[in-house]
Design a protein around this nucleic acid. Structure first.
Lengths: 257, 257
DNA sequence: CGGACCTTTGAAAGTTTTCAAAGTGGGTGG
DNA sequence: CCACCCACTTTGAAAACTTTCAAAGGTCCG
């Protein structure tokens, strides 16, 4: 049982990746180590940065923060102090509607950056909750902003990252607005798979730390419908589920809804 | 009939606004005139820009483009060349899913900026279609980017605008994911009302140039459900509808769903 | 002014939610 | 280290909501 494939958790993948991403053996300072590693790639390692720039950046992004499962990295209304990048683990962003109803608006995996929503008003507009014990890199925004001013490439990277976040949201809008329940679930699985794949992880199996309730909230449906849909996919041979572990068996089948 | 309140179109409002916003009588050049006026306020007139900066900006944003009803300002796949701001009229953004199904992902009113989604990949990821004959201000991105580099305040404004777009999308996600049909329609009406109000227009009545089909697509429901919901609101005394003209009679009632 | 497009309304069909209850799993304290 | 318990998951059946199909007005744009 301890050798079962679904024991192959995110955390393990991430640590492997973190190690292998240390492509430059000369950087051995502790701060440099995590900064140049996997999770901060998008935030810290834009093409076009010279090694001098990278050194400056490493000084800015010097802190790592730990967030335990269920704890908040930040909450609605808190002052905006830093951008974050998921180094290991995963988080969800949540908005609480009046009346206490909650909606999961985002899923952040290792390598994803978050916090951009707070730039507008200077305060966070959603909660970011860890789905498992996680670590994030911290980029204090005032410093980051100053460095953007000095380094064009970094500024361009920031603009692209925010544009990327915008496109991600637009995809989510399409998923919620145009797709039926089973199409949404299939879309989510394929989306996660492709995000993992882009970062060098196995794309056909993963452990999704969201509950069925979280998935339902994210997809605009009830937890029961999520569960039923996954069961149906399983019976149809499209996937195999074992609790939170999911293996995709038939990509084309999933794409065909 | 020609004096009926629903003759009071957006276009009229906008022209009034454009005139009244010419707060500095010294700026009489043609290029300066439209640039310092209403529609570009968000793009061009951040607090913190000195008059010298503003002059430079006016040179960059020198073009106005006309888009006729039904025509595209840009389309999916087209190269990203400029950011835009709606000067008069209104547009929708549309994504076409495989299979030809279309989803309206955004509604842009006078004063709104658009085009940010194209920064990531350098090509547009949606179509922008005019809902009525409209004009937009054009900010060529390479020039705009360069000016951001020279002027901190403008860069900060750009970041805030993109963050704002992100928050707008997040609101839309919540609307689609957590609300029922009538709540979505009510939410849209209140959203439009508040956006008009922020820009100094009458907030209790407006002519929404989208068709019921567009509204349905934007809200993730069918045109029939939109129509039925509006009829029900009308009968309940919450609003008055006359085709595309809508008057909100009972804001609190609408907020209460 | 005419015709195309848009809107409204009804009834039936379909999908998803709600309510309910049993089963499963994993993390926590003893 | 194990057992227990709480939280999560699964499944069923009825109810609710929304869509689909259909047809009759309306509106407005050229």
């Amino acid at each position: 049982m301890s050798e079962a494939p679904w024991e192959n958790r995110f955390v393990n993948h991430q640590q492997n990746e973190a190690m292998s991403a240390l492509s430059d053996p000369s950087r051995t300072r502790r701060n440099a180590a995590h900064c140049s590693s996997c999770a901060m790639r998008h935030l810290c390692m834009p093409e076009g940065l010279c090694s001098n720039d990278i050194a400056k950046l490493e000084n800015i992004i010097s802190a790592t923060r730990r967030v335990k499962r269920g704890e908040a990295l930040f909450r609605v209304g808190e002052r905006f102090e830093a951008l974050f990048a998921v180094r290991s683990g995963s988080l969800k962003t949540v908005v609480t509607h009046d009346g206490g109803r909650e909606q999961v608006t985002g899923l952040l995996l290792a390598g994803d950056a978050l916090g951009f929503e707070a730039i507008e008003e200077g305060t966070h507009t959603c909660d970011a909750i860890a789905l498992e014990d996680s670590t994030v890199c911290v980029a204090p925004y005032p410093l980051f902003e100053r460095m953007c001013r000095e380094t064009d490439a970094l500024q361009r990277r920031l603009n692209r990252m925010m544009s990327h976040a915008l496109n991600r949201e637009a995809n989510h809008v399409v998923r919620l607005g145009m797709l039926r329940a089973d199409e949404r679930v299939a879309g989510l699985l394929l989306d996660i798979s492709s995000r993992l794949s882009m970062r060098g992880y196995a794309s056909s199996e993963f452990t999704l730390r969201m509950t069925r309730d979280d998935m339902g909230s994210y997809l605009g449906m009830t937890l029961e419908t999520v569960s039923r849909t996954l069961s149906r996919f399983d019976k149809a041979g499209l996937i195999e589920t074992q609790g939170k572990f999911i293996r995709i068996c038939d990509f084309d089948g999933l794409r065909a809804v």
